[in-house]
Design a protein around this nucleic acid. Structure first.
Lengths: 241, 241
DNA sequence: CGGGCGAATTTGTCAGGCAAGCTGACAAGT
DNA sequence: ACTTGTCAGCTTGCCTGACAAATTCGCCCG
């Protein structure tokens, strides 16, 4: 017996496989298929959704990658013990993130950036420091020249990540940073630069840079936390319009 | 004690699609295909790897999910601007994590757990605190009764994650926790319990619990960092044999 | 030289089929 | 009564061939 979420017909024009995968994933998250339970067979899914077996297999394959199901040849497809925990992703697959969740995501980023800043303060080599300073200088020039400094902003944070000398931490920070392009755009858009928001951000960057250069882990963590918190505030203020 | 070699489950050869996806992902990571470049056509991949087009499509679909490539109907498959950043995953797809990377992963976990402990100390409700205490008590009983307390250990950390009131942070912590089953097994295996490692861990848990109960964010963060660091040390010591 | 049109190319989807592996039932043997 | 061997049905893994839809590119025409 299949129920509400899983039963609606698929909307044609958008990737059929992804659509079906999303539908099944939603059904699993909603508890329609419990962990350990067997999914309908491919043949049944073909009949239920009126798609070819290739599409069904594509959807199941995607659910496998995301850790929602496991398949055993000859036996069937089974809901994983802990569905959806094979990887970490924000916004469950391309969908936009609810605006209400933004504070939570900023908070997650603050935790990571603070931890990285702390480690960077302790471990940065001279070359690391030079890279951080270079990105900082590029932002200075961008502010002076009224050009876009978002790229330099990226490089600044990436250089700090590299200085922490932990590839997993750096990769996770890079993943998170993707979801904050809007935040940087808010800081670096021409009207915001004139209003001094870029200058304010740069002052926060300076405190972070100084703490890392001085090797003061506690101050670096605090500066990073402060920077992310203020970036969140700038972002929220810009959304008010 | 049973024989070791007879006990290992048979490693089933991975599916052709996963194998091909891994090959292509490695090629992209190695810079063989640059961001923006076009991958070989499906037909070419069919000929080169001697598999059917269905397998090639399965591999490409997986690379799409992981954010390595994007496809455009009629045009081809192109390497994404920032390959592999559509999600965060440790150990690129089911493969075991190199032992040399374990310290880095413990460090990532320490950063997250410290941040969560800090927030939990500030935000925990009475119900949150009761859940944490319940898991703590369950571990006490497990130690006294010489039974496995790994499950209660899980619940303890999960309860702290819930008390931080940030679903993204909690989900990421849950994702990371998956990769530390070996670490908990080391703490809770009977010989280790007798040797006092479970008792040591429990003392670390007590400090964490007390700090959260007292609302002392700094102490909670420090206790969490200390707990993870010592867990890493116990894990490393157990690997020496 | 520039622009529009059609053919070739490429991905998306469908259909059918064989091979490999699982499950449950039943018969045979101990 | 319990174990072992066999088998038929079902399910997933993989292959082949085909058509539809979208893109690309060269050719012809103006």
């Amino acid at each position: 017996m299949m129920s509400d979420i899983a039963n609606h017909p698929l909307t044609r024009p958008a990737g059929l496989g992804d659509a079906l995968a999303g539908r099944l994933a939603a059904a699993i998250r909603a508890g329609e298929f419990r962990p350990g339970a067997r999914l309908p067979t491919e043949k049944q899914l073909v009949e239920r959704y009126n798609v070819s077996r290739a599409i069904v297999r594509e959807a199941i394959a995607r659910l496998k990658v995301d850790g929602f199901v496991e398949t055993r040849q000859g036996a069937g497809a089974f809901v994983a013990a802990r569905p959806g925990l094979a990887n970490f992703r924000i916004g469950s697959g391309g969908g936009a993130v609810p605006a209400a969740d933004l504070p939570h995501i900023f908070e997650l980023r603050a935790v990571i950036e603070a931890g990285m800043a702390e480690l960077a303060a302790r471990r940065r080599s001279d070359a690391d420091l030079a890279a951080i300073r270079a990105a900082f200088a590029a932002m200075e020039q961008a502010i002076a020249a009224r050009t876009d400094g978002a790229g330099a902003d990226d490089r600044f944070h990436a250089a700090i990540a590299a200085a922490a000398h932990n590839p997993y931490l750096a990769q996770f920070a890079a993943y998170l940073a993707q979801h904050f392009s809007a935040s940087r755009a808010v800081t670096w858009m021409p009207s915001a630069v004139d209003a001094g928001s870029a200058l304010a951000a740069q002052e926060e960057h300076r405190q972070l840079l100084d703490a890392i250069a001085a090797g003061d882990a506690g101050a670096a963590a605090q500066a990073a936390r402060n920077h992310i918190a203020r970036a969140a505030a700038r972002h929220a203020a810009a959304r008010e319009d």
